[in-house]
Design a binder for these strands. Structure first.
Length: 297
DNA sequence: CTCCAGGTCCAGA
DNA sequence: TCTGGACATGGA
């Protein structure tokens, strides 16, 4: 029997669903007929936007709407955050280009694992890797009739038991042992992703960095996109470029100086500022400078 | 063929 | 502490 679809609608200002789901914080959403299909936890989700109206559907028989609303941060007052940004022409330009870009609140393990795979990979390829992992090792989920299959993200326990060779055969490359050993550390209790949630920011970051393949950047991505830690400020190649060019007059400062600057200058909502600078750099600004991997056709 | 991608780790100054 | 190279793979 096909599961019935449950549905809720929301009226949300300044929310761009497509931009939010494609800007490089989550990797498993795909567009079909103007809607976005994805998975939250163990459940198939479809989200469709028409102006300020956002419509969410799920095949879950007893939907946890609170969890879904939390994932999308439906109730966040974005203006109260951007209003506290420093008065700054660069950030204002970035903000202008990122209207409606929201930070999600993703499941911790899926987010962490996805970013372990992200090392020196472009976003489309991270999408392929996470899709392969889910299809190969994830639980198959209920979907509406005549829809492509959907899979939960595989648990730490499952991936801990998977051989490195098997993971390499999916194209993970040198990331295979990182993912496997991190999964082992979590499944055997050495690291608790839930307990980390109650730690102060810097301690939480250190705790995540004890995992193999997890350095400051991936720890910050996880804290920002899964834990909602607004102090986290992931510095990747794009953000480093943005900070260097916009705030340090193109003289490349030491990593520690960049971190210290970002932590104080953008506080207390560095996370949002970071994501805007990242997107800004990857699109308009990066293209003008001819440094972007995004090419015109 | 070359260069680069939402990095991390390790060795050697 | 800081820097350079290795590490896999795919796309432009």
């Amino acid at each position: 029997m096909a599961p019935p679809i449950k549905r809720r609608s929301y009226s949300v200002r300044c929310y761009d669903v497509e931009l939010t789901l494609t800007c490089g914080q989550a990797f498993r959403w795909t567009s079909i007929d103007g809607a976005w299909i994805g998975v939250i936890g163990d459940h198939w989700i479809r989200i469709r936007q028409d102006g300020d109206d956002i419509n969410i559907e799920t095949t879950h028989t007893v939907p946890d709407w609170e969890a879904i609303e939390s994932y999308f941060q439906i109730h966040l007052d974005i203006d109260s955050i951007t209003a506290q940004f420093p008065a700054d022409q660069h950030l204002a330009q970035a903000l202008d280009m990122c209207r409606g870009l929201r930070l999600l609140r993703q499941p911790k393990w899926e987010c962490l694992a996805s970013f372990i795979l992200s090392s020196t990979k472009q976003i489309p390829h991270i999408q392929k890797l996470t899709a392969s992992l889910a299809k190969e090792f994830g639980q198959r989920l209920n979907v509406p009739p005549n829809h492509p299959p959907a899979y939960a993200f595989p648990s730490p326990e499952t991936l801990a038991k998977t051989s490195e060779d098997r993971l390499r055969s999916l194209g993970l490359g040198y990331r295979a042992p990182y993912l496997r050993e991190s999964a082992q550390a979590i499944s055997n209790g050495c690291v608790s992703l839930d307990k980390i949630a109650s730690l102060p920011y810097l301690q939480a970051r250190s705790a995540l960095e004890t995992l193999p393949g997890v350095g400051p950047k991936i720890a910050d991505c996880t804290l920002l996109f899964a834990y909602g830690e607004q102090q986290a400020f992931p510095i990747d190649v794009w953000v480093e470029r943005a900070l260097t060019e916009l705030y340090f007059s193109s003289k490349k400062p030491a990593r520690r100086r960049l971190e210290a600057f970002a932590a104080s200058y953008f506080a207390p909502f560095g996370g949002y500022a970071q994501q805007y600078l990242f997107h800004y750099m990857r699109t308009a600004h990066g293209r003008q400078r001819g440094q972007s991997p995004i090419r015109d056709h």
